[in-house]
Design a protein around this nucleic acid. Structure first.
Ligand code: FES
Ligand code: FES
Lengths: 143, 143
DNA sequence: AGAATAAAAGTACTTAATTACTTTTAATAG
DNA sequence: CTATTAAAAGTAATTAAGTACTTTTATTCT
């Protein structure tokens, strides 16, 4: 469904948001270590997200990545759109050029139902909402 | 979700099954042309499926690929298992090594619901059932 | 101002998926 | 039995995703 890069992106952002509101910035090393991903990969991803204003970055010593209260209210589909492209959830399950009920593939009806459940999740759950269970220890970003 | 190879595999098999029961074998060229895919790719895929006895092949002139009435009753998950691997539908949406409700990622609950709708489709729909709408012109394999 | 820090940006390498090509083998027809 | 046909099998080339390395730039602290 999502590319590995995109999964890492979401985990990195959730980690960033699940840090104390005391707003300390996080360095790439810290983030990569925590979500158990390659430092270089995380670096590239966060740069892209910062360019899109989904998160923020500051250079120099005491610099790092951080996310504002306002930005935490974004649904995670914004991350997916940036990393994996806009119409990931509009694709046909059998690879037809366009998923449409007027020219459907044989699995269209059922596939679309499942796809839309997942799509809705990404559209409605905000970064905020998803980092709550992580903060309270009910959900995990690694393992 | 599925790899492109796997999508092509499913379309090739449905095409094979949606041919007249008059049981003429189909050549790779014919199949590839019809589902609009690379001849070489289709060739490799069908060889794999034939080795797994999901379809059959016969060499030589008048040879080709075909599928028996019995084989048509297989659910399409058998194709997915062969091409994309057994546990495609058990994977965590955020890439945790194992999807489990006792160690869930933050999107687990919703993601699992959608994934299971799609999984069920692949588990229950047989080749037979899916080629019906194609035969009657209600669904398409190309376009 | 100068040294140190950390992200930004650009480049290069590695791996896996996909597609293309070549040779071999089995079956049929003449 | 020989030539022909089509899949099988093996190999090679291409492409894209992911990962690693290097240089540059902005910021802070001394
Ligand atoms: S047309 Fe294939 S999923 Fe909609
Ligand atoms: S643990 Fe992530 S989807 Fe189940």
């Amino acid at each position: 469904m999502l590319s590995n890069t995109c999964k890492t992106a979401i985990k990195a952002v959730i980690y960033l948001a699940s840090k104390d509101e005391s707003d300390e910035k996080s360095g790439v090393k810290e983030i990569a270590r925590y979500i158990n991903a390659s430092e270089h990969t995380v670096s590239k991803i966060l740069q892209t997200l910062a360019r899109q204003k989904i998160i923020n970055s500051i250079k120099g010593p005491t610099g790092g990545f951080y996310i504002t209260t306002k930005q935490r209210k974004q649904p995670i589909i914004t991350i997916v759109d940036t990393i994996d492209g806009k119409d990931l959830f509009d694709e046909c399950g059998l690879g037809l050029s366009k998923c449409s009920s007027s020219h459907p593939c044989p699995i269209h009806d059922e596939y679309k139902k499942g796809r839309e459940v997942i799509q809705k999740l990404f559209r409605t759950k905000t970064i905020n909402v998803l980092c709550e269970p992580v903060e309270s220890g009910l959900a995990y970003l690694i393992g």
